[in-house]
Design a protein around this nucleic acid. Structure first.
Lengths: 306, 306
DNA sequence: CCTAGTTCACAACGCGTGGTTGTGCCCTGC
DNA sequence: GCAGGGCACAACCACGCGTTGTGAACTAGG
């Protein structure tokens, strides 16, 4: 289907005459005639009844018209999505299935009129560079740790402290436990594949491991969360951490167990990163929304790196 | 923007490599390269970073991808809307602003997943012919009157009795009346432009006029409801009827008055017309929905032609 | 370190699509 | 019945797009 033909169809439907539509589009009447004929041939349907006083929509044409307008609007939105001037708010998340993505969905639900584009960048450094460059408007990252030096033109706000749960298969020794303390996890192997040294994740888990004696196992390539979950499901010794707000899904027959960790509960600190002089109106709306859903003040039963 | 290029873009994004996408599309790798280059030139943005192991999406490419998929889905829906096999339910209404259109909106709200195409045909005869031919799936018409002979293969159901209100401008002698009886309207001029003799509307209003002594004035061309409302607003003698469920809108400064008519209240009987052997599943859903919102049994305070 | 095998891009060529001009038919309205 | 407006068909031309052929860049493996 040719979008120019669709555009021509809408122009004719609006004008009521081929000639007028041709003038609107700055082409000849014959070209309009050809485009419509081609579209009709493509759809194998007659779109207009030609009369001596112009062209009237057939029933098929009437049915097609709103879909044609939809199509042109979709084209417009697609083009806008990469137009630097007025494009949708572009936000980076580490992963579409974890907590920040859920925050974004919440924002979208509260502001359905806001155009939103979600992207995923490689690591925190490239994300912050992209924020500074204006390539993206905001990023959800764990910048609180390690207390790294951020440039002055970058603003950050802690937006969610996500409590971690222990995820095990049905054969794991802790599978039946309703809850465990962090101290009880000393010596357990926690599998976090693909978290190569230097990323923000390892900065967090290294400290957690050091403080409570866990064994964080980051070996092996990351084949994605599906592969990770399958391995966990079949292993009696492997476990992993997932956030309470993560939206991981797995087949029911995996029979995975999500076990509460308490005394203290480790929480993963998600922050929003943005450039202070970014004037995008939706960015202000996003920050306001996240402010309104911000977590309560940290209490003693929660653990984050200091 | 070329839809083939967009389709190619999605194919490359899915495959991760130009070559594989080319195989999927049954073209050469060079053609894929050209299409992507053309799309990137059109959008003035780089969509992929080319590596020796394939192509990875840039940030712009990531932002563009969901919109590209949207665009292709919109194309699919547009094509489906005129494909005889699996097309949306196609329903005819007399006018998009009057009560049957509101019923359709109610149905769409209750069944948002149902694809619906609304069209408008010239008159009841062509609508019924289109229903028989399968060009449309259903039509809202006032077939109850006159008791015309309908073919056996056509089913009908009374779906809404819409109470009529008198619409006047602020200078009309009845403008201040809170309510009037039908008998009090004897001798009043009711303007219904464009309702040429023989249409279903005139069949109704002719009987109403004959029974209560109204003067139905159908002269003059129908310039649309906007023009009608403007004329009514400025006239001290003209009035018209509108249905309670009609969704006419007019500027606030017109100061139009909608006056209840009672003892009895004239109601306009809207029916649904369909072909009995039409197997479209959404047709059954529409009929069930209309059944559930069907008007109560007629009572003595309502008037319809007998 | 060099080679074999990827990857994608560039060049040259040819066909087909889609634009233009010119003309004819048909319907409407005076 | 004739004039005028509206759309379709025909011929022509050019640009676009797909093809084949080749080259440059990068990766992986010995």
């Amino acid at each position: 289907m040719d979008l120019e033909a669709v555009r021509t169809f809408v122009a004719v439907a609006d004008a009521g005459r081929f000639q007028e539509a041709a003038a609107d589009l700055s082409i000849t009447q014959q070209a309009v005639s050809k485009r419509i004929a081609a579209l009709e041939k493509d759809l194998a349907v007659r779109l207009f009844t030609r009369t001596a006083r112009g062209a009237r929509l057939t029933v098929d044409g009437q049915a097609f018209l709103p879909h044609a307008r939809d199509l042109l609007r979709a084209e417009e939105r697609a083009a806008d999505s990469v137009r630097p001037a007025r494009r949708a708010l572009r936000v980076d998340v580490i992963n579409r299935r974890i907590a920040p993505a859920a925050l974004l969905r919440g924002f979208h639900g509260a502001h359905p009129e806001t155009e939103l584009d979600v992207v995923t960048l490689f690591d925190a450094d490239t994300a912050i560079a992209a924020v500074r460059a204006g390539t993206i408007d905001a990023s959800f990252r764990a910048v609180a740790l390690p207390p790294q030096q951020l440039p002055d033109d970058i603003g950050t706000a802690r937006v969610l402290d996500d409590p971690l749960r222990l995820l095990t298969g049905p054969g794991h020794e802790l599978a039946g436990a309703g809850a465990v303390t962090l101290a009880e996890l000393a010596g357990q192997r926690i599998w976090m594949p693909g978290n190569a040294a230097g990323t923000e994740w390892t900065a967090y888990y290294d400290r957690l491991a050091a403080e409570f004696g866990l064994i964080i196992d980051a070996v092996g390539p990351n084949f994605g969360s599906d592969a990770l979950l399958e391995s966990i499901a079949g292993s009696p010794t492997l476990a992993t951490f997932v956030g309470e707000h993560d939206r991981l899904v797995w087949p029911a027959h995996y029979d995975l167990r999500r076990i509460v960790v308490h005394d203290p509960t480790p929480v993963y600190p998600h922050s929003l990163v943005w450039r202070r002089d970014n004037p995008h109106p939706a960015l202000a709306a996003l920050r306001a929304h996240l402010d309104s859903t911000r977590p309560d003040a940290p209490d003693d039963t929660l653990w984050t790196p200091t």
